[in-house]
Design a binder for these strands. Sequence first.
DNA 1: CGAGTATTTGAGCAGCATCAATAAGAGTGG
DNA 2: CCACTCTTATTGATGCTGCTCAAATACTCG
Lengths: 234, 234
Amino acid sequence: MVTSTVPYSRPLHNLEYSGEHAPSTPPSLVEEACSALERIGCDLKKPAKSIVFRQGESADFIYFIQSGALRLDYQLEDGRNLVLDFLWPGRVLGIVENDVYAWSAIALVDVHLKRLRRSAVQTLAQNYPGITDLLLKQKTASLMAAKNHIILMSHPTATSKLIGFLLDYSKQPEYFNQATQVLTLVMSRKDIADYLGMTFETTSRIFKYLETKNYIKKINHRQIQLNTRMLLDP
Amino acid sequence: MVTSTVPYSRPLHNLEYSGEHAPSTPPSLVEEACSALERIGCDLKKPAKSIVFRQGESADFIYFIQSGALRLDYQLEDGRNLVLDFLWPGRVLGIVENDVYAWSAIALVDVHLKRLRRSAVQTLAQNYPGITDLLLKQKTASLMAAKNHIILMSHPTATSKLIGFLLDYSKQPEYFNQATQVLTLVMSRKDIADYLGMTFETTSRIFKYLETKNYIKKINHRQIQLNTRMLLDP
DNA sequence: CGAGTATTTGAGCAGCATCAATAAGAGTGG
DNA sequence: CCACTCTTATTGATGCTGCTCAAATACTCG
């Protein structure tokens, strides 16, 4: 049941965030840092729906996503649950928080993680400057994701929010089939709603609306064929 | 006209973000880094409403805010303007973007900045590990601000968004008088609206509503006395 | 003081939330 | 493999919140 469907173990040097020019650290140092991290990391597989860490827990570990997908949840005092982000391979969990995790991480599908003790990473960072560099890039990636999230939430209508979400999501090669244009949703209607700031009934209704307008075609609840041209157009 | 009302020049070592435990770098290194940065930085004063940098411009400089307040604007293709953040002394501008600035920075009041050439900071960072550390902390600060922003935008009603905004804002000591409980708004109704994802008419109406409920008392358009206890209660 | 900008206020409507009921899928054990 | 249960998704009816367009008022700055 916990058996992952992952065919191969992704090497850590795929983690580098390419959205920023390498500032001063040469690539060799980053590679060195990755292999150093690889040595102290341990492989960890978690089944779908399992919790990797909980908001408020002592933040002892950081995790590199090798494969799969996760959801970051933030529990509000008023009882609402907010989805802060969806995470894909190449991203890192647990580097932002200080002594305790500021949010929870939940596996959406079976995931393959590399777990590293935070203190070990910090010790290692003293000898490998590439590590700090890598963490800096990961934080930039988180920040850009947050900016994107804010832009999505600022859209005036639920329809444009959802269209923006689908277009962003379709950039994930493991869940969007370019040939068939079919997007596999790894998250529920409620997850999407909690991410975009709406109710899951509205999410469902907008999916329906998009189908009547031929923007999308529902294969089943979790498989949706996109009409990318039309979604990008209006 | 460009004369700043700032009484003193804030030393750079006030910049350290205290929300995270110092990982491994001892404080002495951070101080060293700050004085090194101080040497290559040049003082810059900008009047209220002036643009520090524009979205899309070549990101040659980073700025440390010594005093004043700024607004980060993101221009969308559809013509809407989004306020991504309000920045206060101690924060840094321009470290997130890569080769071009991803958003614009506008002075809300007269500001005093320390301007540093990005390339010079990168060169200096090779000798002073504290610099990378400081940048890492600043990115964490940006990310936490973004998380807060997302939480605010997720609130179900415009009233709770605005209350959340006022409570967050009242943490700024230079604009909230603890004794009189008066908050000085450095931003317009439209700025607040563009930050929270609503129209400025709604912002105005909610201010009115909060006054009728005795949650706030308007001294004038830009001076508002808060009834903090009532705002925190419901 | 006057022109331009920011804010307030009003009326009407559209979109989304709420509550509620049904339908479709997924998971489980016989 | 099927029947049963539990979860997830859809659909419906209704009311309220906040948007739109429009006008009036307050404030700012030269």
